[in-house]
Amino acid sequence: MMAMLRLSQANSLLLPKTSLEGYHAKVSEDNKRASVEIFLKASGFLECAIQHVLPRISAENRKGLPVDLSEGVLKAICMQALGQAIDVQLGLAIDSPKATLAVKRRLACEMVKCWQQAHESMMDLPLIDSWGEKHRLFVKWKYIEAKAAAYYYHGLILDEGNTEKSRRMAVAALQSAEELLKESKDVAEAFHAAPPVSRSPPVCGSMKYLRDKIQKDSSCKVRITKDLYSNDSIHEAVPALPDFAVALKPDEYRLPAVTVDAANG
């Protein structure tokens, strides 16, 4: 319950608000930074539940718990909170003229790792209601979006190389980003259409910037590479993404001590 309240609080901070001067609705940088801290608190509550609460429940009693309280779902939501926090960080990096491509790529790759773990945690769970299936679609949507962002920045960095090989790899990465972006849109539509039906909101987070950039830069780089090397088609395997450890960690939360007298009372 505490984790879900924190998630709700963090997401509410990321809702665009119109300023007192009447300018376009936007999310303030202070709210973005505050949301990161709250996402980490939420993931800390969930990590505590996974590591210190569930192990205290007997295997027999755990069978009677709702699927929403299973280790897989709790793990997925924990990684979702971290993934959302990193997405906010990536958005801040995009807005910062000082942030390098390397920093943005690292954040995008870390985000992929979080959403991948969330996705894998839910893949084999018997989600028996529509809310569970909708959550699974949400995680899949964000996982594919994260991969699109990671391949986009990976492609831009590879394009800085001076060899034909590196530029072809860059094009392959950018084309992969574009394909993943299209796939994510399809999954997003499936998510919103799944019961309970939800309205498709305006694009937000890092994708607010990346959605147009991925399509534009991919087409541009393909055209330039073809002109440079006089080839009608570019065949190159999609390069693997770099493997970065996730820098953000859940805030540590410890269960309050329970005295024997209090327990008996």
Rank of each mutant, 00 (worst) to 15 (best):
M1P: 10
M1V: 10
M4R: 14
M4C: 08
S8C: 10
Q9T: 12
Q9I: 12
A10R: 08
L14S: 10
S19K: 11
G22E: 13
E29V: 14
E29I: 15
D30I: 14
F39T: 02
G44D: 05
F45E: 01
L46R: 10
C48R: 13
H52F: 13
P55C: 01
R56A: 11
R56T: 14
R56I: 06
E60C: 03
E60V: 07
K63I: 00
K63F: 08
V67M: 07
D68E: 13
S70K: 00
E71C: 12
E71I: 04
L74W: 03
M79R: 12
A81T: 03
G83N: 09
Q84F: 11
A85N: 02
A93K: 04
A93V: 02
P97T: 10
P97C: 11
T100V: 05
L101N: 09
A102L: 05
V103M: 04
V103E: 09
L107S: 04
E110C: 07
M111D: 08
C114H: 05
W115C: 04
Q117R: 12
A118G: 15
E120F: 11
S121K: 05
M122S: 03
L125H: 11
L125N: 12
L127S: 06
I128D: 09
I128W: 11
D129N: 15
S130R: 06
H135P: 00
R136E: 04
F138S: 14
V139S: 03
Y143P: 01
A149D: 03
A149W: 01
A149Q: 08
Y152D: 00
Y152E: 02
H154C: 03
L158N: 00
T163G: 11
E164F: 02
S166F: 02
R167K: 15
M169I: 00
A173L: 02
A173T: 01
L174H: 07
L174M: 15
L174N: 04
Q175Y: 04
E178K: 00
E178F: 01
L180W: 03
L180P: 04
E183Q: 15
S184N: 04
S184Y: 02
A190W: 01
F191D: 03
P196R: 07
S198K: 15
R199F: 00
P202C: 07
S206Q: 03
M207T: 02
M207W: 06
K208E: 10
L210M: 06
K216M: 07
K216L: 11
D217L: 01
V222N: 06
I224H: 02
T225P: 09
T225D: 14
L228N: 01
N231Y: 09
H235E: 14
A237Y: 07
A240D: 12
L241S: 05
P242I: 02
P250C: 04
E252S: 12
E252L: 04
Y253C: 01
L255V: 02
V260R: 12
